[in-house]
Structure formats: C-alpha cells, structure tokens
Design a protein around this nucleic acid. Sequence first.
DNA 1: GTCTATATGTTGATAGAC
DNA 2: GTCTATCAACATATAGAC
Lengths: 228, 228
Amino acid sequence: MREPAISAISETEPRSQDCPATSGQDTKQRLLDAAEQLFAERGFDGTSMRAVTQAAGASVSAANYHFGSKQALLGATLRRRIEPFNRRRLELLDGLEAGGAVPDVEQLMDAFFRPPFERAAEASGEQRALLRNVAARLWHDPPEIVAALRVELFGEVIDRFVAALVRALPHIRPARAEMLLELSVGLLVQALNGQAVSLSSSDADAVRQVLVRYAVAGVVAAAQEHPA
Amino acid sequence: MREPAISAISETEPRSQDCPATSGQDTKQRLLDAAEQLFAERGFDGTSMRAVTQAAGASVSAANYHFGSKQALLGATLRRRIEPFNRRRLELLDGLEAGGAVPDVEQLMDAFFRPPFERAAEASGEQRALLRNVAARLWHDPPEIVAALRVELFGEVIDRFVAALVRALPHIRPARAEMLLELSVGLLVQALNGQAVSLSSSDADAVRQVLVRYAVAGVVAAAQEHPA
DNA sequence: GTCTATATGTTGATAGAC
DNA sequence: GTCTATCAACATATAGAC
C-alpha cells in the first residue's frame, strides 16, 4: 500500500487524454491516503507536506491545490475516517430506538463502541495500526482544527447518546450522562491505541466485549450522584 | 524582541536567593518550567527551543548546555512531573498492603487514581490545565523517548498494581488484569484531559470519586473471561 | 554558564510554465 | 491539474567570546 503509486509518475500520462477529469480525483485520493497514514504514524507537526506528497507520488503544489493548506488536509483525513463511524453509530442507535423502544445501557454502549471494531476486523494490519492513532490524535491533539472537527463530527452523536443514556438511566442528570460518555470515550481510545490491549493479535470481538462489559458496569455504577 | 516575561511561569519552589553561584540551577529550573508549559500547550513538535528559551529568559545555547537536546528537555519535564505521582502511588499501595493485607479493587483503583487529583486540588488553574495535557502527551505521543520514559517511569507501578489486582481478583489472568489497568488509565487520562469533566470548575474530589466508582465496577465486571 | 553569531537543513506556501 | 523552481521563515545544534 506504500509504493505502487510511483508507477503513476514513471510514465508520462498514457491515458491522460482519455479521462482528464478523473485524474484530479485520483491524485486527491492518493494524497488523502498518504496523509492519513503519515499523520497517524508521525503526528501532524511531525509530518511534512513533502513527505505526504512524495508518498503519494505527487507534488506539494498538487496537495495545496486540492486542500489549500496542511491543516485542511489533516481535517480531510480525519473527516473521511470518522464520519462513517458516526454514521454507523447513529444507524445502530436508530435501530435500537425503532418503534419508540428504550434501549438499555448495554445496547447503547455496544452501539457506541462497535463501529471502530467492525472496521478493525475487516481491515489489514496496517489499517488497524493507523486506526489506533487516528483516535488518539483526534481526542488529544490541541490544535484548533481538531477541536472544531470534534464538534462538527461528534456533536450529533454525543447529543443523541447522552439523551438515550438519560432515558436508560431515569435518575441521571444530563451533565453526569455526558461526563460518563466522555469517560467511556477514553476507554475506547485506550483500547484502540493501547499496548496491552493489542488489537492486532487479539480478536477484535473479544476486546470489544471486554470494553462493553467494563463500560456498562462503570456507567451504571457511576450514574448515581450520591451512592449509598 | 521581548521583555523577560519570567514571572508568568515560575512556579517550582521557593528557592534561596544566592544569585551568582546557583545561577546555573536557576536557569535550568526556569527552562524546565517554561518547557513544561509550552510542551503541554503546543506539543513537542509545536514548541521550538526558541520559544522555550525566550519564555525562560535564556538563550538556546543555555538550554542545550543544560539538557543536551530538545528531546532530553522533554524527557526532563515529563520525568519531573510524573515521578512524584508514581512515588505516591507506590506509597499508597505499600500502605494498603502493610502487614500482608490484601487490598480490594476499590482501594487499589483509589490509590492509582488519587495522586494526580491531589496535585490538581493543590495546584493553580494554570497548573491544572498543564497537568491535563501532560497526561495526554505521555500516553499518546509516539516518539521513542516517550515510549522509553513510559517504561522507566511506569514500569514498577504497573507491575505492582497488576500483581495486586491479581490478588484482589483471584480468578483473573494476569494478562487480563494488565489490560484492565491499561483501560483504566484511558479513563484517567480522559478525566484529566476532558472537556465535560472540567477539572477546573468541579471539585477534584467529586471527579475522582466518579472515576473510582466507574473503574471499580468496570474492572470487577470485566475481570471474568467468560461471563454467564 | 551564558551569551552572540552562525552553520546547515527543513518547512509551508506560492508563482508561473505547461 | 500538475509540475518545477523558489521564497522567506524557522528549525536544531554548535563555535567561540566572555
């Protein structure tokens, strides 16, 4: 998945006249792929535009033409990776709430945790390693673009799941539900990014089940404001 | 270019005022303070030696004289901040295990989570903001020095607490205990770094209690390999 | 111990040819 | 749309005066 893009520059546009319109999209995709991998491996500041464009077999100018800036390129990679997860989360939640049903905490946490693991199971080793770091970067890198993206990408998901948690735990205050969901995100990030958890050597399903069990018990136990 | 803005950051300890002889230690401390704050705010790659030395009112050469390299400077800041936490963790664990006692999961998780919150309670607002990011950087930044430091600083703590967890939960496999402790670290990092948790506006004790309640229930529930 | 000055490399972004 | 060439700014690290 790394070098085959070189062939694109070894020949001088053999079919460029046949489909010139798709050449732009193709380069854009290769840039996105290369940027995603490098940002995940070496971080935003640790990745130069030159490194990205070389890996993609393109020029720095091409990247700036398509994305405008390095920050916008990072935003595009994160958006592309996260959006499907959150669409899937909402899809699962919609299913659980169909017909006015009130899903319980276990169903909710499972719906929240499942999407990245589905992707991990179907992905190659390299993609899994990548996935781990994307999560860590998105939740712990301070740059402004990441904070804005977090709201853009996660806002609806957080709102919907907090509301569902409030319904599942009738005596919980919404602020507490939000706090517990955020703590659960820490659990998920650690699981995806961790060492001992080792997504690559374990069965993704097994890890997810441990995670869900941990989170369900934790959320239920910490839901009460003043425990006995 | 700038005024010697030193007072904004100096925080370490009330040092004696012998000026010329201890001038070296003084500069070293100021560099450490400035580096810690800037690394926390802008990350390792986002922080230049120039920024650090200007904030500390010193020169780049002085920093390289004292620490040798930028990476070593990062290592020094993390070591200074993390070491007391882990000493305190081991101290609390020693207390719990005194006389051959076998502490339960709640005592263990409390001892593991408490030190950063103690520090947070006694610290200023700036220090609390800083603390949050130190945790996130140490656990999610990929650079080699961070990985090595993690083993150096956390190795003994992890070993001791995993062993204690195995004693507290007799049927748990050590690998599972290690996984659950690592997941719990994710919980802690998210609590220290999170938005909704908001250490600065809440009572640190209250947050810690929620955290402990979440983790205890989670660890106990996820300890069994094959739940009914 | 700390400084000034500098060596040497890299960065993100742009200009303009094609 | 993509390239080559180039820019100004900034990076880390070192040399040598004091």
